[in-house]
Simulated scan of single mutants.
Amino acid sequence: MTSSAYHTVLAELADGQGIERAAIEVESTPASVRDARFFVRQQLFGWRFPESGGFTDEVVLAVSELVTNAVLHGRTRPADDSEHVGIELALKPGRALGVLVSDNSNKAPVAAVRPAPHAACGRGLELVDAVADYWTAAPRENSQGVTGKGVWAVFRCPESAGLLPRSA
């Protein structure tokens, strides 16, 4: 798919009809990354994607990296003030899944320039790029007038999505 085709898919996921949505907000703390992973895994299972394996694990990895980046780089308030990170899933069954992670920072995400081989960080967007079919970032403004950004990762749905039987 071309970049313009992904922009079309992204527009569908953001505002289109027939989109299934699920969203949560988590505290902007390192411990909340686990909560984000749990939410995504449970929602994907609810939408009948496999509980683990290829597609699900790739989506969970991308969310983990994007939420970690939001926690580490997207805070705009002092550490002792409450701040949230938004996580939204948008599913166009049989077509695409979009993951939107939003924070209050206006700074665009920047991929690290070749982190050292033994560096413990700096590969988050590189990992997102490796597992997602497409990703992008855009400024946002919420209903309370808070500005920030949203980072989207888009995944083409596997053929078997929604067709898996539920175990009793």
Score class of each variant (00 low, 15 high):
159 E>H: 05
160 S>G: 05
65 E>R: 02
10 L>A: 06
164 L>A: 10
83 E>C: 07
64 S>V: 06
132 A>G: 07
111 A>W: 04
33 V>N: 03
77 R>W: 05
52 S>W: 05
18 G>C: 06
142 N>F: 06
27 E>S: 14
153 A>L: 14
84 H>N: 13
42 Q>K: 14
104 N>P: 02
9 V>F: 03
145 G>D: 07
155 F>Q: 09
91 L>V: 13
56 T>C: 04
81 D>C: 08
129 D>M: 03
143 S>H: 09
110 V>L: 15
125 L>S: 09
9 V>L: 15
110 V>F: 15
14 A>V: 12
73 H>E: 02
42 Q>I: 04
150 G>H: 08
54 G>M: 03
164 L>R: 15
3 S>D: 14
45 F>Y: 13
68 T>F: 00
5 A>I: 08
99 V>K: 00
167 S>R: 13
61 L>P: 00
8 T>N: 12
24 I>G: 01
64 S>C: 09
139 P>H: 08
40 V>P: 01
4 S>N: 11
66 L>H: 06
71 V>N: 00
76 T>A: 03
138 A>Y: 05
42 Q>C: 06
97 L>Q: 07
166 R>M: 08
37 R>L: 03
85 V>M: 01
18 G>K: 07
92 K>Q: 13
134 Y>M: 09
34 R>G: 08
103 D>L: 04
123 R>A: 08
77 R>K: 14
38 F>H: 13
44 L>M: 14
74 G>A: 01
168 A>C: 02
149 K>I: 09
55 F>K: 05
112 A>L: 01
4 S>E: 14
107 K>A: 14
31 A>V: 00
54 G>Y: 05
116 A>P: 05
127 L>A: 10
6 Y>Q: 07
86 G>K: 05
168 A>N: 06
53 G>A: 07
154 V>C: 10
30 P>Q: 03
71 V>M: 02
88 E>T: 13
162 G>L: 02
5 A>L: 07
104 N>H: 12
43 Q>R: 14
5 A>N: 11
76 T>I: 08
133 D>L: 08
55 F>Q: 09
116 A>W: 06
114 R>V: 12
121 C>Q: 13
168 A>H: 01
55 F>I: 02
95 R>A: 15
82 S>R: 12
57 D>H: 15
168 A>E: 07
144 Q>F: 10
69 N>T: 09
72 L>N: 13
115 P>A: 00
168 A>V: 01
32 S>C: 04
164 L>I: 15
112 A>F: 08
83 E>I: 12
110 V>I: 15
118 H>P: 01
42 Q>P: 00
61 L>S: 14
38 F>C: 05
1 M>T: 11
3 S>K: 10
41 R>P: 00
94 G>L: 10
16 G>N: 01
52 S>Y: 02
51 E>G: 12
8 T>K: 14
60 V>Q: 11
55 F>W: 11
54 G>P: 08
125 L>Y: 10
1 M>C: 10
8 T>I: 11
152 W>D: 09
37 R>A: 12
106 N>K: 11
142 N>V: 00
158 P>T: 04
74 G>Y: 01
58 E>W: 04
35 D>F: 00
97 L>P: 00
113 V>F: 02
92 K>G: 01
120 A>N: 07
36 A>I: 11
48 R>H: 12
167 S>A: 07
159 E>S: 06
22 A>F: 02
134 Y>C: 06
117 P>T: 03
42 Q>F: 15
138 A>I: 04
126 E>F: 04
65 E>M: 07
126 E>S: 10
160 S>Q: 11
107 K>I: 15
36 A>L: 07
1 M>I: 06
